[in-house]
Write a protein that binds this DNA or RNA. Structure first.
Lengths: 197, 197
DNA sequence: CCGGTACGATACGGATCGTTCCGTATCGAA
DNA sequence: TTCGATACGGAACGATCCGTATCGTACCGG
């Protein structure tokens, strides 16, 4: 979005940029998707609607940036422990993040909007899903080196099962994603947690 | 919707009822959710918009009825074979149905809309998800009686894993739900298919 | 000082939703 | 046959939203 560092004329206000994304997050968290009109974002950010459309092509793109900026920092994979425990830790981290309405609602809204917006669907996959998947894939391969005797499940299938169950509960059944139930999921797929205290 | 069989005045036209649901299905299949305006449904059904809003409270409710009417008949669980094979068969049936755009798009649209419509979310769970779950639950318990030695996975967790993976691919990654990949999923959770030809 | 761009404010066209009003049609009951 | 009650198609309405356009003004480098 900001590849051209220096162009003629008045530079774009960094303050306006942040205000827009923050307003989008706040409105989406508080009011949900129906309350998220571009006019409302503009008013809440103290910004002209013109300024929003000068930077993003449409409402979904604003939402996408607001979401990834808020969540990416919170989803750094664990760096310590066995690969197995790091995998479990990462799944827990995603589940924990998504159990907060402030993250869950924007994500759900993006998934919903992406169903009839192919560009947004691609962006969501590339900028959020694929990142989580790549991290998980790397850790899983380490796990399978640590435990070569364990069932050699296809890593892609494993990821689909675990994250699938997570998002299934999130989007469809609406169940809580508390740590205990996430552990049950992981135990079912990976075998019992060896560090089970 | 039609609990009162006999009330005074002119009875509601059954023909209009069917025309509305059929028009909703047709438009949703062809145009997707954004193209599904109530005006368009009314026009396509040869019906006044007034008539639609006399019967359903909003657009999502119409969509809900249209979807369940169209799909419930196609999701009768298999009646023959071992319980294990019937379970696999049912999952395949759901996957096959959802791989058709004519069913996939309405479902995805409903899931999307249900994210900010609690009533619709409840209806979707009670009238679609819960039905599939109850059927699966019954079959799984039979499976576990057939194979008491097999891993005693919590049936709820099992269902979350399998259907979760299905809907994860459907809603988020956009992967195909062809029979082979569904079999891989099932093998990963249940063990290899004993009737693997 | 000047061209170029961003800014806030405001208005607009187009579309949609859900509601409301007509006059007419169709039912059961009196 | 008459009458109340309801449904019907048609049409219009207010409110909302999106994305675009047009103001005059503010800020940048040359």
């Amino acid at each position: 979005m900001r590849e051209q560092e220096q162009r003629p004329g008045r530079p774009r206000s960094e303050r306006a940029h942040r205000a827009i994304l923050q307003a989008a997050r706040a409105l989406l968290t508080d009011e949900g998707l129906p309350g998220l009109s571009v006019d409302a974002i503009a008013a809440h950010a103290g910004v002209s609607k013109n300024t929003i459309y000068r930077r993003w092509p449409n409402k979904a793109a604003v939402l996408m940036d607001a979401f990834t900026e808020a969540t990416s920092a919170k989803l750094e994979p664990p760096r310590e422990g066995t690969a197995l425990m790091r995998f479990r830790g990462q799944v827990h981290r995603v589940a924990q993040l998504m159990s907060e309405p402030a993250a869950r609602r924007p994500f759900v809204a993006l998934v919903a909007a992406s169903q009839h917006d192919p560009e947004l669907a691609t962006a969501l996959r590339e900028r959020f899903v694929a990142t989580r998947r790549a991290v998980a894939m790397g850790i899983i391969k380490e796990v399978q080196q640590e435990h070569p005797t364990a069932s050699p499940m296809d890593p892609d299938v494993l990821i689909d099962l675990v994250y699938g169950a997570l998002y299934y509960r999130l989007l469809i059944t609406g169940q809580d994603l508390d740590a205990a139930s996430v552990d049950k999921l992981l135990d079912a797929v990976l075998g019992p947690n060896p560090e089970n205290t």
